[in-house]
């Protein structure tokens, strides 16, 4: 009987420990959340630099324009890699459930952003007017994606 009891106790303890170790990993993949938040922050920096030029707050430079689009394009290529199934909640994520519920639509939005940023790099705008046009096209991606795939939690 006492053997039986200690066996039960050990099993329970083992199970308990395993659960304790396993739970955070199952519930949330904080690394992925942190990584994509970092990428989006970088994206915001690029957008701000581009926006300041488009608004005429900073002087237009073709080199800077290329930097903005290149940075955005690199982010666009990587961003979709950081939404594993175990990263739906936690870490103040604002990722909407629609990302996992409508993976095709989310993928299509990513591909559009990749294509539009590539097109802007290729267009290589040399003056403010054509930069504004390219930047406007690229920037449309922000809200069309955020309309469905981000939840504002602030």
């Amino acid at each position: 009987m006492s053997d039986m009891r200690s066996l039960t106790l050990i099993s329970a303890l083992t199970l308990g420990c395993a659960t304790l170790v396993a739970l955070p990993a199952i519930a949330q993949n904080l690394d992925a959340i942190e990584k994509r938040q970092e990428l989006m922050k970088e994206n915001g920096k690029a957008a701000k630099a581009g926006g300041a030029m488009a608004k005429g707050e900073t002087e237009f430079s073709a080199e800077k324009a290329n930097e903005v689009f290149t940075s955005m394009h690199e982010i666009a290529m990587d961003f979709g890699n950081h939404f594993p199934e175990d990263s739906k909640t936690g870490g103040k994520t604002e990722a909407a459930p629609a990302i996992w519920e409508k993976p095709d639509a989310f993928q299509a939005a990513l591909v559009k952003y990749q294509n539009d940023t590539q097109a802007a790099i290729d267009a290589a705008p040399q003056d403010l007017a054509s930069f504004r046009q390219q930047f406007g096209m690229v920037a449309q991606n922000c809200k069309s994606c955020h309309e469905e795939f981000r939840i504002d939690k602030d």
Binding site: G44, G50, C142, I151
Partner: peptide
């Protein structure tokens, strides 16, 4: 006014959710 016109906040975060349509 710029946010309502373009959908961008001063930090160049973008409008999202149901506000996209409103903007």
């Amino acid at each position: 006014a710029y946010y309502l016109e373009s959908g961008f906040t001063p930090d160049f975060d973008s409008v999202g959710g149901s506000m996209v349509d409103v903007q």
